[in-house]
Design a protein around this nucleic acid. Sequence first.
DNA 1: TTGGCTGAGTCTGTCAAGCGGACTTATCCT
DNA 2: AGGATAAGTCCGCTTGACAGACTCAGCCAA
Lengths: 163, 163
Amino acid sequence: MSDDEPEAMRWSTENCTISRTMEILGDKWTFHVLRELFVGVRRFEDIRARAGIPRQVLTERLAGLIERGLIRRQPYRLPGQRERYEYRLTQAGLDLYPVLVAMVQWGDQYLPLDDGPPLEARHRGTCNEHVSVVLRCEAGHEPTPREVAFRPGPGAQPRALAG
Amino acid sequence: MSDDEPEAMRWSTENCTISRTMEILGDKWTFHVLRELFVGVRRFEDIRARAGIPRQVLTERLAGLIERGLIRRQPYRLPGQRERYEYRLTQAGLDLYPVLVAMVQWGDQYLPLDDGPPLEARHRGTCNEHVSVVLRCEAGHEPTPREVAFRPGPGAQPRALAG
DNA sequence: TTGGCTGAGTCTGTCAAGCGGACTTATCCT
DNA sequence: AGGATAAGTCCGCTTGACAGACTCAGCCAA
């Protein structure tokens, strides 16, 4: 192989963080479920109806998210009704906020609607300003996407098969 | 319906930015492809081999990403070989950096490996420091996930069906 | 000039997953 | 007792993923 092949070709994708994260997040229904939880919709029927998920798929996705620790199942009881369950984000789930905000930010830029964004992230409480994500390096710079590069880290494994 | 139902239930998900973004990004293979492009792997065979994607699926995903404007197909020619094509991120694709960085950041925190992260985002050039994403509001605060809320924006549509 | 190599696909059959719609269960209210 | 409702389970059809074989185009070596 010639020398101009990208450095990344020498590293395994086996343990890649993006892959492992996608094992959890990696399908559209999971993201739909997370969106509902992030906007405060927590009950099975409400999630199903709003997101348009087949019930069976919703059941399966909720179970997966619980198993991975992103959400928990919690009993609730409306006055005069029997106990039921709702789903809530754990800290691990909440910490996906930057991912969701980054996606909304990208979508608002590249798939804009005439009427403006249908969903906005805001700083709760008195501030109430619009929240976005920014890239920042440890030296305090805020690089543009072109100034950022993914590199193999300490946990990178060489690839088994020759390139 | 009782009054404690979340505000979000009154709004449609039809035009939701997350949904529309997930129409493009929303499956694991698409993310695998993007990862390869972000780390600099650009050729069909290289992407296929590293990401372990079935060829047909790769063909289909690349076509989709081109159609959506996230990548472009560009000819290249190695010395003594015929012209072939490689795939490169457009500006729209590059602007997904915050999404990918946010995912890596989450994965490194919640799915850590013994040896440390296999992939790191760094500020290119002389700086070379580690890059992360932060949430920031327009007043300059950097809220924690719990201090952020998604709210209906100007483009929010009321829901067609009653609650 | 023929034959082989390689990158970038296409084709084919199998099998798992998604899907809509009907059905179930448990508890509350009237 | 009868009806309502949230949260599922069950069923059959269809779509998509998948592995593996095949194709095609241009370059190289003999």
